[in-house]
Design a protein around this nucleic acid. Structure first.
Length: 284
DNA sequence: AGGTGGACCCGAACGC
DNA sequence: TGCGTTCGGGTCCACC
């Protein structure tokens, strides 16, 4: 599932391919992509637009045009973007959008489960849209232990749920939430507001390190995720807990356990991440 | 108000 | 073997 590291990898690869390019022709084949707006309408609006910048905020990919208009792309679960110069595959039932660029190359948007969205906004409208949904960017300086603590303040929800809230750390998803909690040695079900200063500090550092590790390896490919070149990421072999049920903890050797937290599959080390304690004495 | 759970999707994995 | 069922996950939304 594309989370911050995956979307950032896509952004970094698309940026040089898109900046300065004009959208010559846009073919939106699935009405779900632009719902409730008609695909034809969005396609017509996009044709002729010239890309000024390709940015990212949380899990949103932001394509900024010279007119000031902004295209927000969210890949959700199975969305992938590909950039290629060798044409478009003829038989791909999951191909949802094809953009022909003015240099002859194409951007292809593929999405098996059809959760992903393309939202075209008028100049200036992106700021409020994103601000309403997202908190701090976890890899910028404004993401501080104090900022994270403020988000957790008074919350009785499990820390995993609080961490998945995009207003706590924009771009966090199920994989990196588990990885962060393992790094910080905090049990996923600890009430967020119960974490002491030391724990929040550990978690803050863990979040940044887990996300950076993902970016360094071009993301985690478990099934659908690919970079815009079609290559898989390399983070999946480096994961510490996610998906590693019954395997040994890489820190203490205990058996990794799986449970359900915040309605999601959740993996953790019962020894390194003890419930009902601050975990200060656990693990090396 | 804050927290929880279902809906939206569909391929893969699972169960009989 | 083959078919039906369950699972999963980001975000939104209805409901406690």
């Amino acid at each position: 599932m594309p989370e911050l590291p995956e979307v950032e990898t896509v952004r970094a690869r698309l940026e040089p391919a898109l900046v300065g390019r004009r959208f010559d022709r846009v073919d939106i084949r699935d009405s779900r992509v632009t719902r409730p707006v008609e695909p034809m309408e969005v396609a017509a609006e996009l044709e002729g637009e010239v890309v000024e910048a390709v940015e990212r905020r949380g899990k949103y990919l932001i394509v900024r045009f010279q007119t000031g208009r902004v295209l927000l792309i969210h890949l959700r679960m199975t969305g992938t973007l590909r950039h290629a110069r060798d044409g478009v595959p003829e038989h791909d039932p999951h191909l949802r959008v094809v953009v022909n660029l003015d240099d002859g190359s194409d951007v292809m948007y593929r999405d098996v489960r059809r959760f992903g969205t393309w939202l075209l906004l008028e100049p200036g409208d992106d700021t409020a849209y994103l601000a309403a949904r997202l908190g701090e960017e976890p890899l910028t300086r404004s993401f501080t232990p104090a900022a994270l603590a403020a988000r957790f303040q008074g919350r009785r929800a499990p820390v995993k749920a609080a961490l998945l809230d995009q207003r706590a750390a924009a771009g966090m998803g199920n994989i990196y939430a588990d990885e962060s909690l393992w790094r910080a040695r905090i049990h996923p079900l600890r009430p967020a507001g119960d974490l002491d200063e030391t724990e929040v500090k550990r978690l803050h550092k863990a979040v940044r390190e887990a996300l950076k590790a993902g970016i360094a390896r071009q993301g985690t490919t478990l099934r659908d995720y690919r970079t815009p070149d079609g290559a898989p990421g390399r983070m999946q072999t480096e994961l510490r807990v996610y998906g590693r049920e019954d395997e040994p903890c890489r820190r203490c050797g205990s058996t990794i356990a799986k449970m359900r937290a915040a309605g999601r599959g959740t993996w953790y080390c019962p020894t390194c991440q003890p419930v009902g304690s601050n975990g200060a004495e656990a693990g090396p």
